[in-house]
Write a protein that binds this DNA or RNA. Structure first.
Length: 255
DNA sequence: ATGTCGCTCGAGGAGCGA
């Protein structure tokens, strides 16, 4: 099984990038974030043309998530937690006995802001839902834009980012609480020492200077973590014309 | 470097979010 997560930062603009990657890699499932379209505007026809279907949950302008899968696959949508607002940041399915959760964690703006508190509250709701759900099905993959760099090795300039948004202690604690429910960080499990990033700011010529953070993750429950065979970051998508500010992260599992 | 993108509203460019 080949799966991927990608913050596309507008499905309208990134549709050609996405369909070309899917068409060449033929993944079983792709979780995307920041689609920025209402459901009536989701470009389902372009995906059907290359043999894929999708679940999507979007809103105007901001947020929005989707799970794209092969038409021939049998997937069932799972109901998520009740978040305290209607922002579209969560979508989950069951596929081959595995719960696959796509999340777009709030950015948080700056440490101590209202948006930071909202991020922490959102993460707690998510953590509690995952803990409960794991009791029903221990096979789970949580993937998406976490907006958290888990460790210093995931940051290009540790001093500059120390205690800043995406790197603060409370955010990292929240990430580790989810890990400690029984997950492994798939990328880190196969690349223990690599300093690799999944997001580079559009400003400051960030990508060319490699001023990045690793904030997009695939967490695999320990019940199936032995099946992880390959994990990588598709930087080629960040090198294209009109790129997303995120690269895609993929994983291959025996399943 | 308040840096660059993508979006909305609404007809040009300001304002927001990331």
């Amino acid at each position: 099984m080949k799966i991927a997560t990608w913050n596309v930062n507008s499905i309208r603009v990134r549709l050609p990038h996405l369909t070309s990657w899917i068409d060449s890699q033929l993944p079983d499932l792709v979780a995307i974030q920041e689609t920025k379209v209402e459901d009536c505007d989701f470009p389902i026809a372009a995906l059907e043309k290359i043999g894929y279907a999708a679940f999507f949950s979007g809103q105007k302008s901001y947020n929005g998530v989707a799970i794209i899968y092969k038409k021939s696959s049998d997937l069932k949508k799972i109901e998520g937690p009740h978040f305290p607002d209607s922002q579209k940041r969560f979508l989950a399915v069951n596929f081959l006995g595995i719960d696959l959760i796509n999340i777009y964690v709030p950015n948080g703006n700056s440490v101590g802001s209202d948006k930071y508190q909202y991020k922490m509250d959102w993460l707690l709701v998510l953590q509690n839902w995952i803990a409960k759900r794991l009791k029903e099905n221990k096979n789970m993959i949580v993937m998406g834009d976490f907006n958290i760099a888990p460790e210093d090795i995931d940051v290009h300039d540790v001093d500059m980012w120390k205690d800043k948004i995406l790197c603060s202690k409370l955010e990292r604690d929240a990430f580790n609480k989810i890990i400690n429910l029984g997950f492994c960080d798939a990328y880190r499990s196969l690349h223990m020492k690599d300093k690799s990033f999944t997001w580079w700011d559009y400003r400051l010529n960030g990508f060319k200077r490699n001023l990045g953070l690793r904030i997009d993750h695939i967490l695999v429950s320990t019940s199936i973590s032995n099946s992880i065979k390959n994990v990588g970051i598709e930087k080629s998508l960040r090198e294209m014309d009109r790129p997303s500010d995120h690269a895609l992260v993929f994983a291959e599992l025996d399943a």
